[in-house]
Design a protein around this nucleic acid. Structure first.
Lengths: 221, 221
DNA sequence: ACTTCTATGATCGAGTTCCGCTCGGTGAGC
DNA sequence: GCTCACCGAGCGGAACTCGATCATAGAAGT
C-alpha cells in the first residue's frame, strides 16, 4: 500500500462524472479546457451566476460540446472540484516525498500546506470548496470527500508512522479534516492569499487535537 | 448590555431581505408561510433544484406573491436561513436563562445545544446551513454570520463571565464557531437526528480549544 | 511506407423547453 | 373608496436537445 495508491485514483463520490469518456486526443484537451474555462469564469462571476454558455464561449467551444460531457450545469462545477481535489492528493504525495517526513505530524502538516497551496493556486477552488455536502449521497462516511480523505490518511498514518489504526483513527481524522477545511475556507474567504492568522491557528488546532489522542509528535508510537 | 440585546436583533449580513414590509395581518402569515414552504421544499429537492414555482405552489400562493416579498430565488433561501438563525439566537437566550449558567463553558455548551436543536427541528436548515459564505460580502469578519455571532458571544463571555475580551477573544470564538458548525453539519449530513459521536466530539473539541486559552472551566477569569 | 477510405468520435448551433421574474388587472382589508 | 395584497398570463433568457457536419484513427489497399 504505497503513498501513490492511497492518494491517487478517483474519488468515491463521483457519480457519472462525464457522460462519454473521450477517446480521441483533441477531446481530452477539450475536456480539460472546459474545466479551465469553468474555473476562471466561476472565479469571476460566482457559483450561480455562471452559465453553460459562458463556459463554452471561454473555452472556445459550443454549448453542445459542454453537454456532450456533462449532464448539467452543476456537474461541470463538480468535475472542476474533483479535478482540484485530485491535484491536491498529488501535491500531498509530492510533498511527502520531497520534504523529509519523519513523524506523523510532518505528514499532517504537509497535507495542510498542500491544502493551502491548492486554495492559492487553483482557480475556482475558493468557490467550489473541498467537499460538496449538497449533492453527496446521504449514506456512509466514505461518500463524503472528507470521509474518503480521512480514510486514506488514516491508512498512511497507521502504516508509515505506526499510529494505532482502526475506526477511531478514521473518525478523528474525519473530524480533523472537517475542522481544517472550515478554518481554511474561512482564511480564504476575504483574502485570496489566505489570512495567515487562520492558517496558523488551523495548524495549531490540528496539532493540539491529534496530539491529545496520539501523544507528542517526537515520540510517536 | 443584556443577553437579549446581544442575541436578538437582525443579523448584520442581511441585504434588503424583504421588498415590502407587510402591514396587513394576512400578509404576515403569507410571508412565514412562504418560508415554511421553502423550508420543506428545499429539504426535499435540494438547494439548486428548488424553484420559485414550487415554493409558491406549496404555500398555496402564486408566483407573483413570492416576488412581492423577495427579489429573487436565492433571497427566499437567505430569508429562510436568517429566520432560522434568529430562532437559534432566541433559543440560546432561552436556554441561558432557564438552565443555571455559572461558568463560561455553560454558556458555550448552551449554544452548542441550541445549535443541535436547531438542526433537528428546523426544516431546511440542513441545507441552508448556518453561514452563507457564497454571497456574503468579502470584507471584514463581521460580515460573516460566524464572525457576527462570535462577536456577540465574545461580548457575553467577557461581560458575564469576566473573560478577557478584545480582538483575540473574538478571533478565537470565530474559529470555534467555524469548527463547531462544520462538525455539526457533518453530524447531521447522513443522520437527521444527528450522529451523537460527532456531537459529543464537537463539545470536547470546543472545550479543549477554549480551555487551552482561557484556563479550566471551574476557575474562569 | 504511403495513401485512400470509412466508421465513429467530436463538434456545432438553431431550436425547444423550462424557469426566473414582471406587470397590469382583480379582489380583500382598513 | 383607497390602499394593500394577490393573481397568473406573458416575456426574456438560460438550460438543455438533436440531427447535420466535420475530424480522426486505424484498417485496407497498393
Amino acid at each position: 500500500m504505497s503513498l501513490s495508491d492511497l492518494f491517487g485514483g478517483d474519488p468515491v463520490v463521483s457519480g457519472q462524472q462525464v457522460r462519454v469518456e473521450p477517446t480521441q486526443q483533441r477531446s481530452t484537451a477539450r475536456l480539460s479546457g472546459l474545466l479551465d474555462a469553468a474555473a476562471v469564469v466561476v472565479d469571476e462571476v460566482g457559483f450561480d451566476r455562471i452559465t453553460t454558455a459562458m463556459v463554452a464561449e471561454r473555452a472556445g467551444a459550443s454549448i453542445g460540446t459542454v453537454y456532450r460531457y456533462y449532464p448539467d450545469r452543476v456537474a461541470v462545477l463538480q468535475a472542476l472540484r474533483e479535478r482540484a481535489v485530485l491535484r491536491f492528493r498529488q501535491r500531498v504525495v509530492e510533498q511527502l516525498k520531497t520534504s523529509g517526513t519523519e513523524t506523523w505530524w510532518d505528514a499532517v502538516d504537509c497535507a495542510i500546506t498542500a491544502f493551502v497551496d491548492l486554495y492559492r493556486s487553483e482557480p475556482g477552488f475558493r468557490i467550489v470548496h473541498f467537499a460538496d455536502r449538497e449533492r453527496a449521497p446521504i449514506s456512509g462516511s466514505e461518500d463524503l470527500e472528507s470521509g474518503y480523505f480521512a480514510h486514506q490518511l488514516a491508512g498512511v498514518l497507521a502504516e508509515e508512522f505506526g499510529l494505532h489504526g482502526g475506526p477511531d483513527l478514521i473518525f478523528r481524522l474525519e473530524v480533523a479534516v472537517e475542522m481544517a477545511d472550515s478554518i481554511l475556507s474561512r482564511a480564504f474567504h476575504s483574502d485570496p492569499h489566505g489570512d495567515e492568522r487562520f492558517i496558523a491557528e488551523c495548524r495549531r488546532v490540528m496539532r493540539d487535537y491529534l496530539v491529545g489522542y496520539y501523544g507528542p509528535v517526537a515520540a510517536s508510537v
